[in-house]
Amino acid sequence: MKHVAGKSGAPWWAHLMMYAGGLTMVIAGGTAGVAQFASSAAENAVPTENILGDAQAEVEEIKGPLNILVLGVDKQGDSTRSDTMILVHINEDLTETTMVSLPRDLWVEIPDCGPGYSNNPCENKINHSASISGDWEVTRPNVVQTIYDLTGVQFHMGATVDFEGFLGLVDMVGEIELCPWHEIQSIHGEKRVFPEGCAMYDKDESLDLIRQRYGWDWDSDWEEGRGGDYGRQAMQQQAIKALLKAFKQEGYLTDPGKLTEILEGFGDSLTIDKPEEWTITDLAVNLRDIDPESITSVQVPSTADQTFLGGEAVSIVMTHEGAEQEAADALWAALQDDTLDQWMTQYPEWVKTPGKTPTADASATVD
């Protein structure tokens, strides 16, 4: 087992795994062997694929800062499409995390706009980059290239997550806390009604709530920057934080057996793209100091707008020239340079308060 890169003071099981090879020769299958087995099981529990392509940064050791691209995918039959795109930044000390969700209606340049455009580039909503084919092997590189062209950010890791599989992990902790800002009437299935304020929700309820977009249409939603898809993004980020918090409280993030349980719980709902030198257990050790409650959410500088496609008016989200473009360009640079603290100080209107129900001061829109 290679030495754990990065931080010292690793938990007991990490030290045990570092010396597992030598100890098994002496103890012949004792606790070190169990730890080694847990490490191997964790490594084998997660499928890998080439997600990032040319957008992958060259790295060796696990050290900050790190940028991770997370694509939430929707699997229907043989078709897989990405409907959620999150840029995760971890600072140099590997202690602070920032999430930047790209609005699905963000107006961007797309390198391949599909058969309807003779596979030529075009300007369209960013989620169009994921709709050019039902074949994920075709759409995935198009989505990644679109994000890379927009941001210029190179990523150290990539991951695709089926949100249904992700929230299936709620079963492992029973329930998670979610806090809608006002009552939400579900448009799906059982037509649940979610009351304003914080409450505990099980797997099915959580999934239903974080899929809602059209309920975030109150005047206060638009005024406070959580209208439409921004409300959906904020609830998804709440779910991620709540699940991480629950796992940490129950010891899943410091026990190799429980870590493997989490990874196996994803099944084929999670795939990752990481440097070959990195192991899952090394990552768990090095990222152990991140506090889920302190994760900061950032909104891409942009506001609602309207344009025409095929002669029809469509609602979009656009980063406009001037102050918005300046803030957006500075955001992409801050992700690369690990200067997000300075960026947040300069552009507080695009920052959501960590540890509280997210709010923001920009507008968004829905289809």
Rank of each mutant, 00 (worst) to 15 (best):
D329Q: 15
P195W: 06
G116H: 08
S133Y: 13
K352E: 13
A333G: 00
D93V: 05
M17N: 05
W107H: 10
K356C: 02
V285H: 13
H3T: 09
I187S: 14
G22D: 06
I295V: 14
N142L: 01
T160H: 05
I290Q: 08
F266L: 02
I272A: 04
D171K: 14
L209G: 08
D78I: 03
P103T: 07
I184Q: 15
Y117H: 11
A239N: 10
R232T: 00
D208R: 10
A45C: 06
W12K: 13
I62Y: 00
K2Q: 05
K245H: 14
L69I: 01
A45D: 04
A323L: 03
G33Y: 08
H128I: 03
L259N: 02
S297M: 15
A42C: 11
A362T: 12
T151E: 06
E109K: 15
N286P: 02
S302Q: 13
C113K: 11
M157P: 09
D329K: 14
V161Q: 11
A38Y: 11
G322L: 05
G165T: 02
M157L: 11
R232K: 09
V300L: 12
K203I: 05
E183H: 09
G355W: 12
Y148T: 12
S82M: 01
W350Y: 14
L150D: 07
E109T: 11
A304F: 03
A246I: 00
N67S: 12
A28I: 01
G355L: 04
G251H: 07
V366Y: 14
T307F: 11
M17T: 10
Q56D: 03
D291N: 14
K258C: 01
D78A: 05
I316G: 01
T307G: 07
G355T: 00
L66M: 14
D217C: 12
Y214T: 07
K241D: 00
R232Y: 06
G29M: 00
K241I: 03
E276A: 10
T146D: 07
H320M: 09
V138R: 11
A327V: 00
D93Q: 15
C113T: 03
L207Q: 01
E92Q: 15
